Simulated assay, not measured.
Amino acid sequence: MNSIEKDNTIPDKLNVHLQSLWYDAKGDWQTAHDLIDHLEDRTSAHVHAYLHRVEGDLWNARYWYNRAKQPEYKGDLKDEWAQLVKMLL
């Protein structure tokens, strides 16, 4: 179990994208999605695509990858999550 899975307090000063990924890592998909759902920028669209992959809605994920101008990620969800976090830090 990594430190994010153990700690239930969201770290201070995370941007909305990292907040969304934090909630996803905690198993709270709905909060993660609610933080991103209304945003229109490419980074939000990229996180949104990932979240729809987590949900299993691949058609919707493809739509958001397209909006993000990113290729559809085909690898493991944990790897995509880690790549997104690395990109956002």
Results as ranks from 00 to 15, higher is better:
Asp76His: 02
Asp34Met: 06
Leu51Asn: 04
Glu55Gly: 03
Gln19Tyr: 10
Asp34Pro: 01
Ala68Val: 01
Met87Ile: 12
Pro71Tyr: 05
Thr31Cys: 12
Met87Leu: 14
Asp7Val: 14
Ala32Pro: 05
Asp79Arg: 03
Asn66Asp: 12
Met87Gln: 15
Asn60Trp: 05
Lys69Asp: 14
Leu14Tyr: 11
Ile10Thr: 07
Leu14Met: 12
Leu14Trp: 13
His48Phe: 11
Ser3Met: 14
Leu21Asn: 04
Ile4Cys: 13
Glu40Trp: 07
Glu55Leu: 03
Ser20Met: 09
Val47Asp: 05
Ala68Leu: 07
Lys74Pro: 00
Pro11Phe: 09
Tyr50Trp: 15
Met1Glu: 15
Leu35Asp: 04
Gln30Lys: 13
His33Met: 08
Ala45Trp: 00
Thr43Arg: 10
Tyr23Phe: 15
Leu88Ala: 00
Ala49Val: 06
Tyr63Phe: 04
Leu18Met: 14
Thr9Ser: 13
Asn15Glu: 14
Glu40Gly: 04
Gly75Ser: 04
Gln70Pro: 01
Asn15Val: 09
Leu88Trp: 02
Ile4Lys: 11
Leu14Gln: 12
Met1Ser: 15
Gln19Gly: 09
Asp34Leu: 10
Leu88Pro: 02
Tyr23Ser: 08
His52Tyr: 10
Leu89Thr: 11
Ala25Gly: 15
Arg42Asn: 10
Trp59Asn: 10
Gly75Arg: 06
Ala32His: 08
Asp28Cys: 01
Asn15Arg: 14
Asp34Thr: 04
Glu40Asp: 15
Met87Thr: 08
Asp57Arg: 06
Leu35Met: 07
Asn8Val: 12
Lys78Ser: 07
Ala68Asp: 11
Gly27Tyr: 08
Arg42Ala: 06
Glu55Ser: 04
Trp59Ala: 07
Arg67His: 01
Asp7Pro: 03
Asn8Lys: 15
Gln83Leu: 11
Met87Ala: 11
Arg42Pro: 03
Lys78Tyr: 01
His52Ser: 02
Tyr73Met: 08
Leu39Asn: 02
Ser44Glu: 11
Ala25Arg: 14
Leu21Lys: 10
Tyr73Leu: 03
Glu72Gln: 06
Arg42Lys: 11
Gln83Arg: 11
